[in-house]
Computed example of a mutant assay.
Amino acid sequence: MRYHVRLSDEERKTLLKIVSRGSAPAKTIMHANILLAADENGTGGRKSEVEIAALFHVHPQTVHTIRNQYSEHGLQAALGRKKRETPPVEPKITGEVEAKIIALSCSSPPSGRSRWTLRLLADKAVELQYFDSISYVAVGRLLKKNELKPHLRKCWCIPPEQNAAFVACMEDVLDLYQQQYCRLYPVVCMDEKPYQLLGENRTPIPMKAGRPECQDGEYVRNGTCSIFVFTEPLAGWRHVTVCERRTRVDWANQVRELLEVYYPKAKKIRLVMDNLNTHTTASLYEAFTPDVARSLAKRLEIHYTPKHGSWLNIAEIELSVMSKQCLERRISSINFLRLELSEWETARNKKQKGVDWQFTTDDARTKLKRLYPQLRVNSVIVIRCKSF
């Protein structure tokens, strides 16, 4: 059966515009060229399907199909594939089922498992008859869409809600950070970190092209030590000391060195640190004579960070940087550790500027409102006295 293509003037203009612009899909442009070549009203005369197919390097059946589409369904059907009329498929995961899977992923994992996996969630969803069957890939897409990551767990200091003691210490430290720099009354932050000394049981294999350094999993334990860090945020200064233990006497010796060696002219040092059992002026009396201890204590103004609020101590930033840049390896002896930390301290004091602390008391009262106790305003009777 021969199908006739007789284009109207409007249809011919439409096809010429598609061909000349070249912005349509390649398939649409090809169909437009075939229709223009097959037009019986055109100036080029009638061409057979074989001639048109050879002209555009297609099969004659393709030309026949395009002519058929134009004759039966019109121009738009001939330019593109006709849409299949299929009934809509209902989604397998409805909003109700999605909410159930989200709640399941936020619940405690099964006994004997530390966390939920995608396969565990898929199997549990089938067990609870949410579906007849579901792939763990579909569960993964659902969790990704809702930004849920049950395989991750972050360690964080979670402060108690509505805690007056936490708020009091927090605002005290935040107000201190907002004060202007004063050479005679410097603000110094202090923190400490335990460190395990580890030696190599076998010599590591050096790195080569295409192969990283190979380190044996077996190591030698050489004891532990304690690292003390002092930093003055506004001056961009820090000092690191390694001690064999973490006792009251060790802390007292570090404070005395801070006062007499590094800040001999300061009238008073405002010291920010965690509220540990060794971080008290009583430690000074255990280490020194009463007159020395008292003279040191008079030059200290101690500001404690709240419990579960160590993020308020700027020395924590220095400890974190120090751990990443210097301590993430095996160090076998305390002497070598002291040498390495001394080099790190010197380099960082030369390059690193002061810390620009941005979090203020006003920010805390807005963003950490849940930490503040609810005010209970008692009814007050106001008596107005008329003056005569």
Results as ranks from 00 to 15, higher is better:
residue 3 Y to P: 00
residue 3 Y to L: 00
residue 6 R to F: 12
residue 6 R to I: 12
residue 7 L to W: 00
residue 8 S to W: 02
residue 9 D to W: 03
residue 9 D to K: 09
residue 9 D to I: 05
residue 9 D to T: 07
residue 10 E to W: 03
residue 10 E to R: 11
residue 13 K to Y: 04
residue 13 K to A: 05
residue 14 T to F: 09
residue 14 T to M: 12
residue 15 L to E: 08
residue 16 L to M: 07
residue 16 L to H: 05
residue 16 L to P: 00
residue 16 L to D: 09
residue 17 K to R: 12
residue 18 I to E: 07
residue 19 V to G: 01
residue 20 S to V: 00
residue 21 R to T: 13
residue 21 R to M: 10
residue 23 S to C: 06
residue 24 A to Y: 11
residue 24 A to L: 03
residue 25 P to S: 04
residue 26 A to I: 08
residue 26 A to W: 08
residue 26 A to L: 10
residue 26 A to H: 10
residue 27 K to E: 06
residue 27 K to F: 07
residue 27 K to V: 03
residue 27 K to C: 04
residue 28 T to I: 07
residue 29 I to D: 01
residue 30 M to E: 03
residue 30 M to P: 00
residue 30 M to D: 00
residue 31 H to T: 03
residue 31 H to L: 05
residue 33 N to Y: 02
residue 33 N to H: 06
residue 33 N to A: 01
residue 35 L to W: 11
residue 35 L to I: 10
residue 35 L to S: 10
residue 35 L to C: 08
residue 36 L to W: 12
residue 37 A to R: 07
residue 38 A to I: 08
residue 38 A to H: 09
residue 38 A to E: 10
residue 39 D to P: 11
residue 39 D to N: 12
residue 39 D to E: 05
residue 39 D to C: 11
residue 40 E to I: 02
residue 42 G to Q: 01
residue 43 T to Q: 02
residue 43 T to D: 03
residue 44 G to V: 00
residue 44 G to L: 04
residue 44 G to N: 07
residue 45 G to M: 05
residue 45 G to Q: 01
residue 46 R to E: 04
residue 47 K to S: 07
residue 47 K to I: 01
residue 48 S to R: 09
residue 49 E to D: 12
residue 49 E to K: 10
residue 49 E to G: 07
residue 50 V to Y: 12
residue 51 E to I: 05
residue 51 E to W: 05
residue 52 I to G: 04
residue 52 I to L: 10
residue 54 A to D: 15
residue 54 A to P: 03
residue 55 L to K: 14
residue 55 L to C: 05
residue 56 F to K: 00
residue 56 F to Y: 15
residue 58 V to K: 09
residue 59 H to M: 08
residue 59 H to T: 12
residue 59 H to W: 04
residue 60 P to S: 12
residue 61 Q to G: 06
residue 61 Q to R: 14
residue 61 Q to S: 15
residue 62 T to A: 12
residue 62 T to R: 08
residue 62 T to S: 14
residue 63 V to T: 10
residue 64 H to F: 12
residue 65 T to I: 05
residue 65 T to H: 10
residue 65 T to W: 05
residue 65 T to V: 10
residue 66 I to D: 10
residue 66 I to H: 10
residue 67 R to E: 11
residue 67 R to G: 06
